[in-house]
């Protein structure tokens, strides 16, 4: 280190560092002041966000009124619907969002929809819909006829209770229709209370779970009745098994799907 007769030791801060220091100090203070000025108010009050944003989201306009509001004026329809199959179906599902109408903010009234496609959106047959949900095959159920001519939308029970279980259990009926159990009517195995079509989940049909039940037709030496609910069983080749040894202690439907029982 060249000692030029003066105070030049490594302790003295070189000029260029001071120059830089000034620049950085200026920048740093500037950044800090800008930050103080521009951080939005309410930021950080409740967390790392603008607390005022919560109110902004909560202030969005409302479109759906909710069925209880409809009851204030349209009591008859709501009361009827409350006791029907559509009791869980909100008015605005079919009649559209009605907040403006309910709050008298508009002269327009919600539409009275009549096109088949509205009903079919829920009720056309799709195997993915849960069993027990009423479904129809569009082309075979009064094609082109408007639904409300037979079904009151606020009380849509059909005028006659459908005889076939296929109205609600379409997937099962379709599977069974191409199986060995096709000739058997559902009621052969499932004793069904009359109320089942009115309050399905509270009046469940009986499901047989004794091996002997299936054995009534399928056990070796069993003598099933000749005619069961209009079907002559003597016209069919009924498979027989030894009920004592076949399948151990398992119940029959633990291996054989009862609606398509052919062993695969």
């Amino acid at each position: 280190m060249c000692d030029s007769g003066g105070a030049l030791r490594t302790r003295k801060i070189p000029v260029q560092v001071i120059q830089l220091g000034v620049v950085f100090l200026f920048l740093g203070v500037g950044m800090f002041l800008l930050r103080q000025r521009f951080v939005p108010e309410s930021f950080g009050d409740l967390g790392h966000y603008r607390a005022n944003a919560v109110g902004a989201v909560a202030a969005h306009p409302i479109q759906y009124a909710g069925w209880q509001v409809c009851a204030d004026c349209h009591t008859d329809e709501v009361e009827t619907k409350k006791r029907s199959y559509h009791r869980t179906l909100s008015c605005e599902v079919c009649h559209g969002a009605a907040w403006a109408h309910a709050n008298e903010e508009t002269d327009e009234t919600p539409p009275l929809p009549t096109q088949r496609s509205l009903c079919l959106q829920c009720h056309s047959y799709l195997p993915s819909r849960p069993t027990g949900f009423p479904q129809i095959v569009e082309e075979r159920h009064e094609p082109a006829k408007l639904c409300h001519t037979c079904h009151n939308p606020h009380d849509p029970a059909p005028s006659e209770t459908p005889e076939s279980c296929s109205a609600c259990h379409a997937a099962i009926v379709r599977v069974k229709a191409v199986s060995h159990h096709a000739p058997l009517d559902c009621q052969v195995c499932h004793e069904t209370p009359a109320q089942h079509s009115v309050l399905p989940r509270s009046n469940l049909p009986r499901k047989p779970f004794e091996r002997e039940f299936c054995g009534k037709c399928h056990a070796k030496g069993a003598k099933p009745p000749n005619v069961v609910r209009g079907v002559d069983l003597r016209e069919y080749d009924i498979r027989r098994i030894d009920l004592d040894t076949h399948g151990g202690t398992l119940v029959c439907w633990q291996c054989h799907y009862q609606h398509s029982p052919e062993a695969r």
């Binding site: 989201v57 909560a58 202030a59 969005h60 306009p61 409302i62 479109q63 759906y64 909710g66 069925w67 559509h86 869980t88 179906l89 909100s90 605005e92 599902v93 829920c122 949900f133």
Partner: peptide, 22 residues
């Protein structure tokens, strides 16, 4: 948003409101 603008006023979210089968 769970229809925040509805639930803070005691209403249900729109999707829950219209679901036909609950």
């Amino acid at each position: 948003t769970f229809c925040y603008h509805r639930i803070t006023k005691g209403l249900l979210p729109a999707c829950v409101e219209v679901c036909p089968t609950q």
